[in-house]
Design a protein around this nucleic acid. Structure first.
Lengths: 226, 226
DNA sequence: TTTAATATTAACTCAATGTTAACCCACTAT
DNA sequence: ATAGTGGGTTAACATTGAGTTAATATTAAA
């Protein structure tokens, strides 16, 4: 992937400058907006991969802006993350309703922020989806469980992420490279058999037929409707 | 890769000259067109890797031209980028529908443009056609299947690539050399019968009549419409 | 008719994937 | 500290089937 585009939205210019400076230095393409209204304009133009937005802002608050942004189909894959003070439970809920993908709490610790950003961009919006569903299987990211015909199956993290990725586009083949990039991350290197073993464990738990091997290409999730 | 070919389309000759001069200096092969109609002519001939096109033009606007260009399968891998003034939301949406890959906003900052061009060309067109389609057959690269009158056929890698190649230009004869170069790669050497066997297996699976032998020349895909 | 080009079949090879168990490490409870 | 637990990874070996080849038959062009 070329360098990712990030849009920062906050009414505090100092915070904007600070974050912009640091994120640019990290190699991201950064734009800023001072309020929700501006954010929408910039977002439509800039088509960022990630939007980090303060919840509380003058003119138009983050939640409203988020709803607006979600209306633009070109921004369907954009990840929206809210900045929020600790303990603002209510706004968090409303934020999720409006289509937010994650939260970062103030005060911001740069290290935390950067690792979070990396994580978000890596998994790349695709499986940012909180609930993935096919005819006979549902995967719930919030609860971290898989429900298969009323049977709840709990999976360890990697298996969960792997299944979530495959389910994000049923019938689509995911190459090993893509799986590695998405579930493990581009930087970290693991042996070639690792992925097979995870596939094996998944098949053991949800049944062999759900995951199909396309030799020389990759793996795909296929739904079984009985 | 040899030096990339870029087609610039804008109704403002000054901009064309400026960009052409600078891009040529960077080592790109550049051609220009003054409107959408000319752009299509040049594109069909020149087969550029990248087209940078103003949205607003006399004669035929960028979006219409883009749609036309997308119809030429030889230009399937060509990246089309629009030049647009800030905040033209509507045109952006329409542009993506028409098959645009990216946007560059005016006013143009040369540095931004160059880095963007580099990025686009690097990620490079590699994103081959995902779906190839004729009247009675559709080949889906994402799912790695062939659909023939509602019947799904899954093929192993080489057979799939071979069929995809032949289908990319129905009725066109592909020489053995071209097939080897495209499906196997220029370096790797395999015996001469290998290709026949793959053709055989394909015919077995999709029916004999779809692939015709032109003795002494090569093979071609012909559609069957019943 | 002659012959080079292609078709066909089956056997073979090897790379890709499957499988199993052991190992490492972080985390937890004792 | 110590032992226990479980996720994640690795290593060694087994299996599979895609891809190739070889041997023989058939075809179509000159």
């Amino acid at each position: 992937m070329s360098s990712s585009k990030i849009l920062l939205v906050d009414d505090d210019e100092d915070i904007l400058d600070l974050l912009e400076y640091n994120l640019s230095k990290e190699g991201y393409i950064v734009k800023t907006a001072i309020n929700g209204k501006k954010a929408i304009e910039v977002a439509n133009d800039f088509l960022p991969d990630l939007i980090i937005m303060d919840v509380m802002m003058p003119e138009m608050d983050g939640i409203e802006a988020c709803s607006e942004i979600r209306k633009n189909k070109l921004l369907a894959n954009t990840i929206i993350t809210f900045l929020t003070a600790r303990g603002e439970d209510y706004s968090q809920i409303a934020g999720y309703d409006a289509g937010a993908d994650d939260y970062i709490t103030k005060p911001i610790k740069p290290k935390v922020l950067f690792s979070k950003i990396k994580g978000l961009l890596r998994r790349g919006s695709v499986e940012a989806q909180l609930v993935e569903e096919t005819a006979s299987m549902r995967i719930d990211r919030e609860k971290y469980i898989v429900v298969q015909r009323d049977t709840e199956i709990s999976l360890p993290k990697k298996e969960f992420e792997l299944l979530a990725l495959l389910m994000s586009k049923p019938d689509n083949v995911f190459t090993r490279e893509k799986i590695f990039a998405s579930v493990w991350g581009d930087d970290i290197v693991v042996g070639d058999r690792t992925i097979d073993v995870h596939i094996r464990k998944l098949r053991e738990k949800i049944g062999d037929d759900y995951i199909k091997t396309v030799k020389g290409v990759g793996y795909k999730f296929v739904d079984i409707e009985d």
